[in-house]
């Protein structure tokens, strides 16, 4: 049993890492990766929602009638998204401001509903938690990598809690392109290309 939990957990970290291996959840990954802080914050918020919604969907999977399962899943997901929203507002307010409408939009992140439908509705709760955690951490890693590339190239520094860690000296001319919208697309496209160069196994 421990083995199958480990298997469900690790697949989200590499073989099925979103959005590099399975192209889902693109909107947040493009929009909130201007800075590493935002990227990781968004990743953790999504992980929280994924784990809890997976757990509850899996818990009630035998009670929920098949025909209304999607609305039921959506309500469960939306509840946890609102919980995250309120908690972030109360405890990590600056991050809440930066992520803006992308927190409520976790509801329509295809990864969350995708995992509920494809995994949690067919598997036992403990496996669903492992799956949610793995997928969530994988997603956080992707966000962290993309935001690190964009922030370092775009501003020449990484900022945590208002204190910038300058990586390049004043001679470095920042690629402002990277932190703007077009840079997000190009940067993700190139990262996908690098991922394709590395074999899955």
């Amino acid at each position: 049993m421990a083995q199958s939990i480990a298997k469900e957990f690790t697949k989200g970290l590499w073989t099925e890492i979103a959005p590099f291996r399975i192209v889902l959840g693109l909107c947040p990954i493009l929009a909130v990766t201007k800075t590493v802080e935002n990227g990781i914050g968004m990743g953790l918020a999504t992980t929280f929602v994924l784990v809890f919604s997976n757990f509850f969907v899996s818990l009630f999977r035998n009670i929920i009638p098949a025909k209304v399962r999607i609305p039921c899943f959506i309500v469960i997901i939306a509840t946890f998204v609102t919980i995250v929203e309120l908690l972030m507002q109360a405890y990590t307010y600056p991050l809440f401001l930066k992520l803006g409408i992308f927190i409520p939009l976790i509801v329509v992140n295809c990864i969350v509903l995708g995992r509920a439908e494809a995994f949690a509705s067919k598997n036992a709760p403990h496996l669903s938690i492992a799956d949610g955690l793995g997928m969530g951490i994988g997603f956080t890693l992707s966000l962290a990598v993309l935001s690190a590339v964009r922030e370092v190239l775009g501003t020449g520094a990484i900022t945590f809690y208002e204190t910038p860690i300058v990586l390049f000296g004043p001679a470095f001319e920042p690629f402002t392109f990277m932190v703007e919208a077009p840079g997000a697309f190009v940067c993700l496209g190139l990262l996908l290309c690098f991922m394709n160069l590395i074999p899955k196994k």
Binding site: V68, V75, I76, T79
Partner: peptide
């Protein structure tokens, strides 16, 4: 169907209002 959906929505509303 209606019952399950209503119960889930009601519970969700309850939890959220407390929070």
């Amino acid at each position: 169907m209606v019952l399950v959906l209503t119960v889930i929505t009601a519970v969700s509303g309850g939890i959220l209002s407390v929070l």
